[in-house]
């Protein structure tokens, strides 16, 4: 129990559309242990970001958590008031976003934006906050940290802005850092630097990371465990080695095959046919069945349960129905 930092049980987050209820996240279970990096993988629109925003309590106004528990550090976040959540956000749980270009307020100085969280959470004075921020900026690789404080976001490049976002997120020494596609908008060379920086900081601060990505390439490098999401559900969960050696779910397999490889000579890049169905158009059976190369009759009729391949490797697929069934909470 002690080493579980975050445990999500049966999370359902819904949006109210035009008289329709849209189940963006539909019964997600996942666990993050202390100082572990968990990668949450899946295509766009599969509910990864909404899962992370649900943890933060930052779901857009027309959405709500309709079922499930988010137990962080022993307390259920879904039962917390807005005031209590404010004390946790940016303090115990921090978040960095996909778009460093637009995630900083264009009219406030970097210093102003970096210190405001510290002033609120750690009750620091302006000077103390500034000192802490300068220390953080140096840590994320700014040589001229003092000068950056009085600069504005538009004076920095995308990679520098993401470093600022990381400094902002880590300044309060959070227990959990949620990184929502932190490198997607960056150049490949900058990507590697940012990932390296996140690894270093994780070691230093003993922070757990929830890394949301659609790039399986960076998962192998960063994560301890992987959760694969498809159409609002978890379809596979495994230790990173186990997943790469033996991707069980046809969807995971498809994602793996979609990574361009230099070793194998490929005429065409593999791609999974079709698109993620919209949350109001989920099929009756397995949600992946219409796109699945291995789909059987049963897949179109019944929704599969979760089966265990042992060693914490779970998969939601009828191909494994002979194996031990995991009961969902």
């Amino acid at each position: 129990m002690e080493h579980k930092l975050l445990e999500i049980k049966g999370l359902k987050t819904q949006f109210i559309g035009d008289k329709k209820i849209i189940p963006a996240v539909d019964g997600v279970d996942l666990t993050i242990h202390r100082s572990e990096t968990l990668a949450l993988v899946g295509e766009s629109g599969c509910g990864k970001s909404i899962t992370s925003l649900s943890i933060m309590g930052l779901i857009p106004e027309n959405g709500k958590i309709s079922a499930g528990e988010i137990i962080f550090n022993g307390e259920d976040l879904t039962k917390k008031s807005e005031k209590e959540l404010e004390r946790i956000r940016g303090n115990d749980v921090s978040m960095i976003f996909q778009e460093p270009m637009t995630s900083l307020n264009p009219v406030l100085t970097i210093g102003e934006q970096l210190t405001e969280g510290l002033i609120i959470h750690d009750k620091l004075s302006k000077q103390e906050a500034n000192a802490r921020v300068i220390e953080m900026l140096k840590l994320v690789g700014f040589a001229r940290a003092e000068e950056i404080l009085s600069e504005y976001p538009h004076q920095l490049s995308g990679g520098m802005r993401q470093r600022v976002m990381i400094a902002m997120a880590m300044a309060t020494n959070p227990k959990l850092l949620i990184a929502d596609e932190p490198t997607t908008a960056l150049d490949v060379t900058i990507q590697a630097q940012i990932l390296e920086l996140m690894k270093e900081l994780k070691e230093q601060f003993q922070t757990s990371i929830l890394l949301i990505t659609h790039d399986l390439g960076i998962v192998a490098d960063m994560a301890d465990r992987v959760v694969v999401m498809y159409a609002g559900q978890v379809v596979e969960e495994a230790e990173v080695e186990s997943l790469y050696e033996n991707p069980a779910h046809p969807y995971t397999e498809g994602l793996m095959k979609s990574i361009p490889s230099l070793e194998k000579e490929q005429k065409r890049l593999y791609s999974i046919q079709g698109y993620v169905p919209a949350p109001d158009e989920f099929p009756i059976g397995c949600r992946f069945a219409p796109r699945c190369e291995k789909a059987m009759e049963i897949c179109h009729e019944k929704a599969p349960n979760i089966y265990s391949l042992g060693n914490g490797h779970h998969v939601r697929c009828f191909l494994y129905k002979e194996l031990e069934e995991i009961v969902e909470q």
Partner: peptide, 20 residues
């Protein structure tokens, strides 16, 4: 996005409105 960042920092709603 930067308003979401401000909320993610844990700023109270009023402060986000006023400042950001």
């Amino acid at each position: 996005d930067y308003v979401r960042t401000a909320y993610a920092k844990g700023l109270p709603r009023k402060k986000v409105m006023r400042k950001h």
